[in-house]
Design a protein around this nucleic acid. Structure first.
Lengths: 264, 264
DNA sequence: CCGTATTTGTTCGTATGTATT
DNA sequence: CAATACATACGAACAAATACG
C-alpha cells in the first residue's frame, strides 16, 4: 500500500528542502502551482504543507506564500558557567554568551506573589504540598526581544528569618543568592538543572511572539539551589523558545572556545 | 473579530485538559459528538483536534477515538556524572539513572563508516571540511525499547597513529575513550555538550517508533571531547525522543537525590 | 489612497477507505 | 459481518492578508 497522496507530496517537498534545492527562506510553489504539478486538490496540497509545518520545515504567510523556515543563529547558554561567574540579573545569570555577541540583556522588575506550593514545587523544595512560598517572576529580554520567562520560588521561612527583600518588587542586580548569604548566612553551594521540552502555553506563545502554528516548542529548565546542608533554598523555572536557544554543559577542562560558531 | 471556530473549539477542549476535567488517557468526545456539541462540521472539529495534536496534547487512534496523551515518566540522564563514573557502553555512558530503575540497557554493535567531514563536524573537531573521519554509530536500548541513536566521529589521524580498533565493528565495553588512552596515551580531560531540539527525521521516527503526527521532537546532543592540549578528539552526536527523556546537570555540591521523582 | 489580483485561511459538503471493536 | 471511529480526498464558497499598479 503506498503512502497517501498528501504524504507523498510532503515527502517530495521535504526532499527538495533537505537536498538544498529549496534553501532557507525560499518560497515554495503556491497552492495553485502545487495543485497543478501534483494533480491533486487544493485541500490535499494544503494537507501536505501542514505536514511540513508541524515538522518545522516551512511556514506560511497569508497573502504571500509558503516559505522554507530561516535557520536561526541560536543563543548559547552555558549552564555550568554559573557558579563561578554568577553575574548579571538576579538568580540564574547566563549572560556571558549574550555579552560576547554585543547584545544588551535586560530584565523586567520581578512580579512577587505569595502562594501555596503545588505538588511539583513542594517536591523540589522538599516542603509539604500547600506550604507557603514566595515567587519572583521576571521576563528577560535581549535587545528588547523576549528571551526567557523565569520564576523563582523560595520557602516562606527565608522571609520569616529576615530575608524581607525577597518580597519586595525590586530587581536585585547582585542576585538573590548573594542577598541570602549576606542577610542569613545561607550559602548556595550547588544546584541542579533539569532540562525538558514541551509545547508552549498561551502566555508563552504571546510573550515570545511564537508562530501560532505550534511548530516551536520551549525548553523548560528546573534549577534547584542547595545550601551547605543540602537543603533546597530555591527553585528557578526558566522557559526558552527551542528554535533560538541552545544549552552547553562543560565538564572537566574545556578549551576556551571564544565566539562559538553555531551548528545544525 | 473572534477567533475562528476551530480554534475556539480547540481552546475549549484544551481548557478541559488543563483543568483536569479530561485527565491523561481519557477519551475525548468522538467527532460526531463534537460536531453536535459545537454545531460545527466534521472538518471543522477535525481541525480543532489537529490543533491539539500538533501541541502534543491529544492523539487519535483510528477505529478507537481521540485520547489525552499519557504523561510519560521520563528517563533522567545526568550529563555531569560522566567523567567520574564513565562506565557502561562505549563513549558517553549515561547509565546510572537507568540502573537505578532496575532497567537493562543494551547497545548494538557499532556501525563503522569512513567518510569525509561535513562542515559542521569539521568545525567541531577543528579539521578542514572534507577531512577523512571515522564514524561509529550505535543504537541504544532500555529493556529492548529504543532509547537513543548515537554516532561518534573521530579524526582519521587517530587510526593512523595506531588506534586501529576504532575501525573494527566491535563494541568496546570499557569505552573508546579509555582505549585511546591505553593505545595512544591520549587522555580526554574534558568535554562539552551542546543541547538542541529539532524535529525527527524519517530514520529516527522509525527507530523510536514515534507517532507520525509529528508531535514528538528529539533532543540532539553534540558532545565534543578534548585532550590535555585542548584538541578535540571526538564528537558524539546523540539523539533522544523529547517526550520520554530529561537531562540533568549538577553544579557544585548537590545532595544525593536517590531515585529522583519526575516532575511536569 | 484605492481597487484589483494573488495567496493563504476558514468552513462547509460529500464520498470512500481503513482500523478497531 | 456489522457498527463505530478516524483517515483520505475531492469540490466549493467566501474571508482575510498582502502586493502592486
Amino acid at each position: 500500500m503506498p503512502d497517501p497522496l498528501y504524504r507523498r507530496i510532503a515527502q517530495d517537498l521535504r526532499q527538495k528542502i533537505d537536498s538544498g534545492e529549496l534553501g532557507h527562506g525560499d518560497q515554495l510553489p503556491t497552492e495553485l502551482e502545487l495543485r497543478e504539478h501534483y494533480e491533486a486538490s487544493r485541500n490535499t496540497v494544503r494537507d501536505a504543507v501542514k505536514w511540513l509545518i508541524t515538522r518545522g520545515l516551512v511556514e506560511t504567510r497569508p497573502g504571500q506564500g509558503t516559505f522554507v523556515v530561516e535557520k536561526i543563529d541560536p543563543f548559547i547558554t552555558t549552564l555550568t558557567a554559573e557558579l563561578e561567574t554568577g553575574l548579571g540579573g538576579e538568580d540564574t545569570a547566563y549572560v556571558s554568551e549574550v555579552a560576547a555577541r554585543q547584545r544588551r540583556p535586560t530584565v523586567s522588575a520581578p512580579r512577587i506573589e505569595i502562594l501555596r506550593a503545588s505538588e511539583v514545587i513542594a517536591s523540589e523544595l522538599r516542603l509539604d504540598a500547600g506550604s507557603t512560598i514566595v515567587s519572583r517572576g521576571q521576563q528577560r529580554y535581549i535587545d528588547d526581544t523576549p528571551w526567557s520567562l523565569q520564576i523563582t520560588f523560595y520557602p516562606m521561612r527565608l522571609v520569616e528569618q529576615g530575608a524581607v527583600r525577597l518580597i519586595q518588587a525590586q530587581d536585585m542586580p547582585a542576585g538573590t543568592v548573594r542577598y541570602l548569604e549576606e542577610v542569613l548566612g545561607i550559602r548556595q553551594v550547588g544546584c541542579r538543572d533539569k532540562i525538558t521540552v514541551r509545547a508552549p502555553d498561551a502566555n508563552e506563545t504571546t510573550f515570545f511572539k511564537l508562530p501560532d502554528d505550534g511548530r516551536v516548542a520551549v525548553f523548560e529548565i528546573f534549577q534547584t539551589g542547595f545550601d551547605e546542608q543540602g537543603t533546597p533554598i530555591r527553585l528557578t523555572v526558566s522557559v526558552y523558545p527551542a528554535d533560538r536557544n541552545q544549552f552547553a554543559v562543560d565538564i572537566g577542562r574545556v578549551p576556551d572556545l571564544g565566539p562559538v560558531p553555531a551548528f545544525g
